[in-house]
């Protein structure tokens, strides 16, 4: 079943075209990553899907409903994790979570959600006193309190330390295992690689590549790089047949030093994809 279906999405701000004809299909139960540099149009796209922003053109269906005309009953089925809870500094974690639970028809149990995001021992703490990582966890708690079918996470781990990011990833994977469809944006490649079942790279308002983390941008079949240290220093050879290249090297030189065979990392592919667009 399709959770999100987008065709030819367009959005302009004045004379700038932020989103220039995007197509997207996200299946139910999928964790989908939207990757791209700042200003590429990913936040705009997500905000249109959330019903927070109007579009200028194209078709959008989120859980079978046009977000531009959605009613409260549709908002009951989606969850949005915003960046940084700083808006109710004087409320405690438990107070704000219980309060948000009342807005939904079928909320999760607030105590359970607080436990799930690992804030049980801070439940009585005021938002003001929470650390950055704890606030992000509270953001997630408020995003999932309504037991959403579809969860939007826009750059969820920006500003978190590595340990907090790892815990955060576990949290997201846990939600995905429960069957929540997740749309994640990020500019951390490793994060998307760990979390996403499929991903798309967006640059200058268009999708430049789409696939699984392993196949994106022809990564699976891309040329490998063979490096070794020869008489003139470091040698580099790009080849589609790395095993043969190594065998040829051995045949020609015997044992060689500093030999490595590497495939392009997701980052290499990504830089190439957005670089080509940014030239």
């Amino acid at each position: 079943m399709t959770a999100v279906r987008v065709r030819g999405l367009q959005k302009r701000y004045g004379k700038t075209t932020a989103v220039d004809g995007i197509d997207l299909d996200i299946q139910r139960g999928e964790v989908f990553g939207l990757l791209g540099p700042n200003g590429a149009g990913k936040t705009t796209t997500v905000e249109i899907l959330e019903g927070y922003r109007d579009r200028d053109g194209g078709e959008v269906e989120v859980l079978g409903v046009d977000p531009g005309r959605a009613h409260n009953s549709w908002r009951d089925r989606i969850g949005v994790v915003w960046q940084s809870t700083a808006d109710a500094p004087e409320l405690s974690v438990a107070e704000i979570t219980r309060n948000f639970a009342q807005y939904y028809q079928h909320p999760r149990d607030p105590e359970q959600v607080i436990d799930q995001v690992g804030l049980t021992e801070h439940a009585g703490k005021k938002v003001y006193h929470l650390s950055g990582g704890q606030r992000r966890r509270l953001d997630v708690a408020l995003g999932i309190i309504g037991d959403p079918e579809l969860l939007f996470l826009d750059e969820p781990t920006t500003g978190l330390d590595p340990e907090a990011r790892r815990k955060f990833a576990d949290l997201i994977l846990g939600l995905a295992q429960e069957g929540t469809t997740i749309l994640l944006t990020s500019h951390y490649l490793d994060e998307v690689e760990t979390l996403a079942d499929r991903l798309a790279v967006i640059a200058r308002g268009v999708i430049v590549a789409e696939g699984t983390p392993k196949t994106l941008g022809g990564r699976a079949t891309a040329v490998s790089t063979v490096q070794w240290i020869g008489e003139d220093g470091l040698q580099t050879l790009d080849t589609a047949t790395p095993a043969k290249a190594v065998a040829d090297l051995y045949a020609a030189h015997g044992e060689i030093t500093g030999l490595t065979v590497s495939r392009p990392t997701l980052e290499d592919v990504y830089i190439k994809l957005i670089g080509a667009e940014n030239e």
Binding site: W82, Q83, Y103
Partner: peptide
């Protein structure tokens, strides 16, 4: 202040009328 710190849009994304 609430608008600037994102409190309003957080509420707008919920089914709260």
């Amino acid at each position: 202040v609430e608008r600037d710190l994102g409190g309003l849009r957080r509420l707008a994304a919920t089914p709260m009328p």
